[in-house]
């Protein structure tokens, strides 16, 4: 009896391996291109595309080709490819939403060949200057430019990191912290002004350590903990460097911790949406 069970299992397994679509009725098989990079992509693509007993997706990371097997009476190729595009992967029929693509892990950010470049003149890309984030991310690591205050990129990255924490986005915070780390290492100490230099020497160790520990984890709790002392160091630094724009030093009584912000209105990075407006400005740095 048991052996029968085993053989059955074996046969079933075999069947499901050889023709993985054993359960899909009226199965139709097609081969389509889906853009992606790695094994992680493969898992995401196949999970999003497959539906139990209706559709199955088998994607090959080398050829970028996917074998779609589905029941044409219930679904179709477009539905499958749309689901896959909605988790971030382009095909020749659907382009993933930009917001979803940009949230893919670094290793998964494939080359978007399928995308047709936007005609720049056509787009009335009204000046996005108020969305400082857009501008800043462009020159976040341009430290060689002597004209720019060297520490500016450190501060800019600090604010981006703070924004990620406000949004309670652990993975974004980790990425921003990495950027911050490279901005820190890119600073040429010898070109700093005297008073900046002194503070820099003092805080460099902590600054690097905190940025590193934030970038090493996606755990928002730990990140926020490290952010406390990171903010303290940055505060000292920003005081010394006399920023061109007004910076607000803000305080969260719940956490007994401070942070820096470019806006006077409180957006608390230690709590995010739960307690967004908790806290107050304690100092205005000009």
């Amino acid at each position: 009896m048991k052996s029968l069970e085993k053989t059955m299992m074996a046969i079933l397994l075999l069947l499901s391996v050889v023709i993985s679509n054993a359960q899909i009725k009226n199965a139709k098989t097609e081969s389509v291109k889906i853009y992606g990079n790695c094994a992680m992509c493969k898992a995401t693509i196949e999970k999003a595309g497959s539906l139990k007993n209706i559709a199955n997706v088998d994607w090959n990371a080398d050829t970028k080709m996917a074998v779609l097997t589905y029941d044409p009476k219930i679904t179709n190729q477009d539905e499958i490819l749309k689901r896959i595009a909605l988790v971030g992967y382009d095909s020749d029929k659907f382009l993933a939403p930009d917001a979803v693509y940009s949230k893919l892990a670094g290793c998964c950010q494939y080359n978007r060949e399928a995308k047709v470049p936007v005609k720049v003149d056509a787009m009335s890309r009204a000046d996005k200057s108020e969305h400082s984030e857009m501008n800043m991310s462009n020159h976040s690591t341009t430290t060689n430019d002597q004209a720019v205050n060297q520490l500016k990129s450190v501060f800019d990255n600090y604010f981006l990191l703070k924004d990620a924490l406000v949004k309670t986005d652990g993975s974004a915070a980790s990425i921003k912290a990495k950027d911050l780390l490279s901005a820190i290492t890119a600073v040429k100490m010898e070109t700093l002004k005297m008073d900046e230099h002194l503070v820099w020497m003092k805080v460099l160790k902590d600054l690097t350590a905190d940025a590193k520990s934030i970038s090493d984890t996606q755990d928002i709790k730990k990140q926020r903990e490290s952010f406390k002392s990171l903010s303290k160091s940055t505060y000292l630094l920003i005081k010394a460097s006399k920023p061109t724009e007004v910076i607000y030093y803000q305080y969260c009584p719940m956490q007994d911790a401070n942070w820096l912000s470019k806006e006077n209105s409180v957006k608390n990075p230690y709590y995010g949406s739960q307690m967004l407006s908790c806290g107050k400005t304690v100092e205005t740095i000009k």
């Binding site: 659907f94 382009l95 939403p97 917001a99 399928a114 047709v116």
Partner: peptide, 9 residues
């Protein structure tokens, strides 16, 4: 006309 650019749901 052409490839469909989706927007995030």
């Amino acid at each position: 006309d052409g490839i469909k650019q989706l927007t995030a749901p």
